[in-house]
Write a protein that binds this DNA or RNA. Structure first.
Length: 489
DNA sequence: ATTGCCGGGAA
DNA sequence: TTCCCGGCAAT
């Protein structure tokens, strides 16, 4: 159970990942740290300590003071620049990283200028007193323009930014949510209210990152992939700190899916059947065994059972309760119709074997089986299939006999032992009397399976030997889906 | 995806 | 008890 659970949990998608992030786990400046890291090597990326949130800023200051500009300007970013003797605000057009030049569109002058990156600083709306940064006073720049400010993403102040974030949220939602999880039209409120509340800064960061990318026509070298990766919760980040939360968060959607309690079930489309099973395996087997099994040549019509079932999604209660029979047709959920609705196909026989009928003796399958077991097909009714072992029969090696003694122990049908002995005696002359056998049974501790299931043996089983189309040639146990009694390991 | 068979239900 | 089969686990 735990393994299944974990497997399922592992498939969750990303949006939820963000949702459950530990509050405060992702400081708003992290994307910038990544961004910078994409452009210049970072000495601190290996830090896994939570305090690393603060450390980068400190470390980043060092390059700034040494004259090296590590500030990355996003296109469209609102910045201030010293122009014409006064500070002017403008929008970053582009940032030529190689030349460390920033092209800024000045809003006031309505013109575009190109200046050095160190002459540009981010417009800080909140109470920052803009200081005059003469270019020649570059040493001052770091003092009032710490990296954390320069790289800070604009707070959500303007409507444009908010719209961007909203768009990003919607994009993320639509991209990462499975259909089941998809929110109804009014769900944004729910999303931003309930979930974003839990998201904390981690989600906010994601949105910031995404909006900053999506709102800019030009991608920042080395930054966008990171951003995208980050926004989608990819574990690419080399900052160990946020990898773990992301990995953890990635596991969110599955439980939400489960919360919806919509369960996929499979309905048999065979006329007047309509059986509903929970597993695709089950429905396939159902179709094969009950409807196709004896009539369809396995080789030629492999997978034909695929055409005889459809997928339905049911509410949790109904699914849990199970729809036992055909008559009570399951009610597919309104919002999610069956994924595959196949027109009821013609009866398989019509196309498969034409005039052949399942019970018809003229039906002689081609292949080794038909050659080797010509008569066995018709006289099985008498008793267990293995009582009617065809003369050809399977290669039975002497060692089988002993194993029979053990394996037959659990079921130990009295009628079985003589038959089996007879059928096997041709290969193993020594035949212990039934009494002996029962003794063996009683005193047989070495039965391997004190654990759970019997390990699957290499021996061929009735299904393999006869095929599904000759199910009635199987041993009884095989037909009953019990441990094969004919081909013992 | 297929196969073996356990566990349990129906007749 | 016999017969059957869903569902799980191994492959």
């Amino acid at each position: 159970m735990a393994s299944v659970l974990s497997r399922r949990l592992g498939k969750r998608s990303l949006l939820g990942a963000r949702v459950l992030g530990p509050p405060g786990a992702a400081p708003p400046s992290e994307p910038q740290a990544e961004l910078l890291e994409g452009a210049a090597p970072q000495p601190f990326v290996a830090s896994k300590d939570a305090s690393c949130q603060e450390q980068p800023k400190e470390v980043l200051k060092a390059p700034g003071t040494s004259g090296l500009q590590l500030v990355a300007f996003h296109p469209g970013q609102k910045v201030c620049v010293w122009y014409g003797g006064q500070e002017s605000t403008g929008l970053v057009e582009r940032h030529s990283w190689a030349e460390d030049k920033v092209t800024v569109w000045l809003l006031d002058q309505k013109l575009q200028i190109c200046c050095k990156a160190e002459e540009v600083w981010l417009a800080e709306p909140l109470g920052r007193i803009p200081q005059v940064p003469p270019p020649e006073q570059g040493a001052q720049a770091p003092a009032y323009r710490p990296v954390s400010r320069n790289i800070d993403v604009p707070k959500r102040k303007s409507d444009a930014v908010e719209m961007d974030e909203m768009m990003a949220a919607m994009v993320l939602t639509s991209l990462s949510c499975s259909p089941v999880v998809q929110s109804p039209p009014g769900a944004e409120a729910n999303f931003s209210g309930e979930e974003q509340g839990r998201m904390g800064s981690g989600c906010g960061r994601g949105f910031h990152s995404f909006s900053s990318v999506s709102s800019s026509g030009e991608k920042f070298p080395g930054a966008s992939p990171k951003y995208l990766g980050d926004a989608f919760g990819s574990p690419q980040t080399d900052n160990g700190f946020e990898t773990d939360p992301d990995a953890f968060l990635l596991d969110e959607p599955a439980p939400r899916k489960r919360k919806n309690s919509v369960k996929v079930m499979y309905k048999c489309l065979w006329p007047s059947c309509g059986k509903v099973l929970r597993s695709i395996v089950g429905i396939k087997r159902h179709v094969k065994a009950l409807h196709l099994g004896d009539t369809v040549d396995s080789d030629q019509f492999k997978r034909e059972e695929d055409f005889y079932y459809t997928e339905v999604q049911m509410k949790g209660e109904a699914a849990a309760a199970g729809v036992p029979t055909a008559d009570s047709a399951p009610t597919p959920s309104v919002t999610s119709p069956p994924l595959t609705i196949l027109p009821p196909p013609p009866p398989p026989k019509a196309q498969s074997s034409g005039p052949d009928h399942p019970g018809l003796e003229s039906y002689l399958p081609s292949g080794a089986l038909s050659k080797s077991a010509p008569g066995s097909f018709w006289h099985i009714q008498a008793d267990h299939a293995y009582q009617a072992l065809p003369p050809f029969q399977i290669p039975v090696s002497p060692h089988i006999y002993t194993s029979i003694s053990w394996a037959a122990a659990p079921s130990s049908t009295s009628s079985l032992s003589p038959v089996r002995s007879r059928s096997l005696s041709f290969s193993e002359p020594q035949q212990p009397p039934p009494a002996m056998k029962s003794h063996l049974i009683v005193t047989s501790p070495p039965r391997a399976q004190s654990t759970t299931r019997k390990a699957r043996g290499e021996a061929k089983k009735c299904r393999k030997v006869y095929g599904i189309e000759h199910r009635d040639q199987w041993c009884t146990a095989c037909r009953w889906k019990k441990a094969c009694q004919r081909f013992l390991d």
